[in-house]
Design a protein around this nucleic acid. Structure first.
Lengths: 197, 197
DNA sequence: ATAATTCCACCGACCGATCGGTCGGTTTTC
DNA sequence: GAAAACCGACCGATCGGTCGGTGGAATTAT
């Protein structure tokens, strides 16, 4: 067993990536299992060899989107001591994740609210809440450090920040003006000092 | 003809209101024409007497949502001379529209991106763009008035503001903490001075 | 005033298509 | 040769949409 046991990469991952692409482009409901199978040059029967249901695929895609966010944002800033710098980095990384062409799972998670079976649904919602809480706590830390006296609570600021970032996929066009590298400093400054400094 | 010619109110409006409620609660795709008809105590055949297709209903709902926004936000602030006060009022009114239980059409318009026939789709998208432009222009005015030197462009600020407001429906619970009346001043201050003043 | 006609909201059975999902059997892989 | 991967025909259900017809109110003719 010298590095074997693998090969064929683990086709589940490939399938999920393709499915995520289609779900993002056409929407979950408008994408049939036949569409997914065809895009993978599989039959529908073959596809069902790997997944039990369409819901299960959506669940895995959403879970993977949350894995990505935790990996590329939460874990990535653990080492940063200064709260303000940590928050600035979170903003940058989160925007980069949302705009990443590679991570279409994230957009699917943001947009689709197809009713999953309750147990699966609860798992996803809990992880989403955890992330909001993470951002809220970080903002509270920065507020404390800066001695903020304003009326903006950490919770409202977190929800506003996540709202403006998570809404980007609704209007962003890679070929349009306002590119990612312009967006990051502007959204950051908006949160830290408003739009009229 | 003494005030006659009416009666029966105009059932198309009633139908659209019911459809909007169902579309918002269950989603457009997950709501069948039978569901809509049943909620109105109609048969599906009877429903199709009033509308040609499900797409047409969605189009009218979205158009109506844009009517509401123009009426209750854009037109409502026309009389306000001072740009800053006008912008503050726009923020308040827009949040109130998004949170209004009565205007479920708005949430439907924000969330659903079902592919309408191109001509209808273009109309909706154009009106959305017009509204973004309206907010962008207003922000630019305030920036000029205040002599803003920062790096936040009016366009980025407009998209961020609309993002944080239009995202509210994703997390807002009427029974939760963070009510509308708390939200409005906090979102306003966030845009004007950031979260750490 | 009444009979005939028009009109309109509505019904309910039906259609073709498509959907998610199944299953028995065949091919591929190691 | 066993096990995993895969095929393709098939199923029941549901979908958006159609259509011939019906009953009653309004309109017109007589």
């Amino acid at each position: 067993m010298s590095g074997v046991t693998r090969e064929a990469v683990d086709s589940r991952q490939d399938i999920l990536r393709t499915a995520a692409r289609l779900f993002q482009q056409r929407g979950y409901d408008a994408t049939s299992m036949n569409d997914v199978a065809a895009a993978l040059k599989l039959s529908k029967g073959g596809l069902y060899h790997h997944f039990q249901s369409k819901d299960e695929m959506l669940f895995h895609i959403m879970n993977h989107a949350l894995d990505i966010t935790e990996e590329r944002v939460v874990k990535a800033v653990r080492g940063i001591q200064n709260p303000e710098e940590r928050l600035r980095t979170v903003i940058r990384l989160h925007i980069e994740v949302v705009l990443s062409v590679r991570d279409r799972e994230v957009t699917v998670m943001l947009h689709e609210n197809h009713p999953l079976p309750p147990s699966l649904r609860k798992q996803i919602n809990q992880r989403k809440k955890d992330y909001i809480h993470f951002v809220e706590g970080l903002i509270a830390e920065v507020q404390k450090q800066k001695g903020t006296k304003g009326t903006v609570s950490a919770r409202a600021a977190a929800l506003a920040l996540l709202g403006m970032i998570n809404w980007i996929y609704q209007w962003y066009k890679p070929e349009g003006r306002l590119q990612a590298q312009d967006l990051i400093p502007q959204y950051t400054e908006l949160l830290f000092a408003g739009a009229f400094q």
